[in-house]
């Protein structure tokens, strides 16, 4: 999301406008999506108000779990978005800057409400997964697996982990990243970045052991349908709705 519109990029840049969020959300519900995640990718204070309005309009006509994130820095902002209709709050940069924000949110709203989003880039020299913040622009020097573990111990009830290397490339999820993550933490992990073909979803559920997979481009552009993905997963023995 950017300025109240749905947008999608490749490797976090070259954003293309996709359309009106409430209409897109309603269409995804019709197709059988299980959850929706709204991330305000260029959040500023002025746009925060836009996001609140978007959450309000989506939650009036779409009845599935909504996760909202982007630029949230305080418990008061969390409360505002939850009241507008969000079910879960996603923290990314602010959680790295102020890890106690995870704990404060979890204590006030419950762990199930606090999602920590982690944007990960693999260091090609060392093979280490590293955490990036500020929409992927800032390298933190944090190890992604260590940060995931810390976020959970601070109160995160779910992790939304995006592979920046895979984002928008449609070359498959980074199943190795998710396999390592699911061995380290025991909260639900949502994989994001790289969905291109039906088998990519099977791989990330079966080999990556994730609890959910997020896809944007392939659905936004109608290249895959949600029901097509679910049928493929069912045939592979993955328990889906």
């Amino acid at each position: 999301m950017d300025n109240g519109r749905v947008k999608k990029g490749i490797n976090f840049v070259n954003l293309v406008d996709i359309g009106d969020p409430a209409a897109i959300a309603a269409e995804y519900e019709r197709q059988g999506a299980d959850e929706l995640v709204f991330l305000d990718i260029t959040a500023t204070n002025q746009k925060r108000q836009t996001m609140k309005e978007v959450v309000e309009s989506v939650s009036r006509r779409v009845f599935m779990p909504l996760t909202v994130g982007g630029g949230i820095k305080s418990v008061a902002q969390m409360q505002l978005l939850l009241k507008a209709g969000a079910d879960k709050i996603s923290l990314n940069t602010a959680a790295v800057v102020e890890p106690q924000l995870i704990t404060k949110g979890a204590q006030k709203f419950g762990r199930q409400c606090i999602v920590v989003a982690i944007d990960v880039k693999k260091n090609s020299a060392t093979g280490q997964y590293m955490v990036f913040t500020s929409g992927g622009q800032h390298g933190t020097g944090l190890d992604a697996l260590d940060w995931a573990e810390q976020a959970v111990s601070l109160g995160a009830g779910e992790l939304l982990v995006t592979s920046m290397d895979k984002d928008g490339t449609k070359s498959g999820f980074d199943t190795e990243l998710y396999r390592e993550l699911t061995e380290r933490v025991d909260v639900p992990i949502i994989a994001s970045g790289g969905a291109g073909k039906l088998n990519d979803f099977t791989a990330v559920f079966c080999k990556g052991k994730v609890d959910g997979a997020l896809a944007a481009s392939v659905f936004h552009y109608g290249e895959l349908t949600i029901s097509g993905v679910k049928d493929t997963l069912k045939k592979a023995g993955v328990n889906v709705r």
Partner: peptide
């Protein structure tokens, strides 16, 4: 079985 149960069930 992760606790809390968070998700769709039949």
């Amino acid at each position: 079985y992760k606790v809390p149960q968070m998700g769709w069930n039949e």
